[in-house]
């Protein structure tokens, strides 16, 4: 590595200076302030202008969706944009194969994004199925779904009702046959989630008498309903 140093450009020499092998040893604080910051959070802010944030956003959307007890609004624009990009790239590869090695690299990224998209959509469908009876009667939750999910929930509810009626409800007295929004699972918003604060929020009240100060990069275990608003405005992310 030392022999390479002859060729490095000025920007690169900054990086080599940070290398632990060098004579100038940075203090722990310097390391933490400067070099560590890109690693402290999984965000890649402040990078070159060619970075497309959509993938990072979708990653957050997946993690948030997985952690939140209730269904979050569907990321229509994000999913649409990325799907379009994927189709474009795949069409491009069909026409012009290019170098096998670079094609393999592009293909790897395509697969990674597809995996992320699938994970995101599956996590949502899991919730949709579990709370099908409740969500299908709630305008607010239906508005958070994509057209596909709305269709899915109606069909699922239909199948569920037919199944329940055939297997057991028919055999029960009429007064016990009701099957409506209040039957089945209802999401419980008072459940604990872990979140990281993305920007200073200041004091928020956690009980009638207690407040807590939320600063950037703090990690909290809190009831979901306390952070729900902050999550919608991207001031916190779930972990």
């Amino acid at each position: 590595m030392a022999s390479d140093n002859v060729f490095v450009s000025p920007e690169d020499s900054v990086m080599t200076n940070l290398s632990p092998m060098d004579a100038v040893e940075p203090t722990v604080d310097e390391l933490l302030d400067g070099a560590l910051s890109p690693y402290l959070s999984d965000d890649q802010d402040g990078d070159s202008p060619f970075v497309n944030e959509d993938v990072t956003k979708l990653k957050h959307a997946w993690v948030n969706e997985k952690q939140a007890p209730d269904l979050l609004p569907y990321e229509t624009q994000l999913v649409e944009d990325l799907t379009e990009m994927l189709q474009f790239i795949e069409a491009l590869q069909g026409e012009d194969a290019g170098q096998p090695f670079t094609v393999m690299l592009y293909q790897t990224e395509v697969e990674r994004i597809k995996y992320l998209l699938r994970s995101y959509l599956r996590t949502r469908l899991q919730k949709v199925e579990r709370y099908a009876m409740f969500y299908s009667g709630s305008e607010e939750h239906l508005s958070r779904m994509s057209a596909g999910e709305q269709q899915y929930i109606h069909q699922y509810r239909g199948l569920f009702e037919t199944h329940m009626t055939r297997t057991c409800l028919d055999k029960l007295p009429e007064s016990l046959r009701a099957l409506d929004e209040t039957t089945g699972n209802i999401p419980w918003n008072d459940t604990a989630v872990v979140c990281r604060v993305q920007q200073d929020v200041g004091e928020i009240s956690v009980t009638e008498t207690e407040t807590v100060e939320m600063r950037r990069d703090n990690i909290f275990l809190m009831p979901y309903q306390t952070v729900e608003k902050l999550l919608q405005s991207d001031q916190v992310v779930l972990l």
């Binding site: 959509d54 993938v55 990072t56 592009y106």
Partner: peptide, 22 residues
Amino acid sequence: EDTPITIIPTHRMDTLHFISGS
């Protein structure tokens, strides 16, 4: 796996244009 890492390439290669960035 999206964390940025510094590498020293051993082969010459043109800019790669990925969906997530170049």
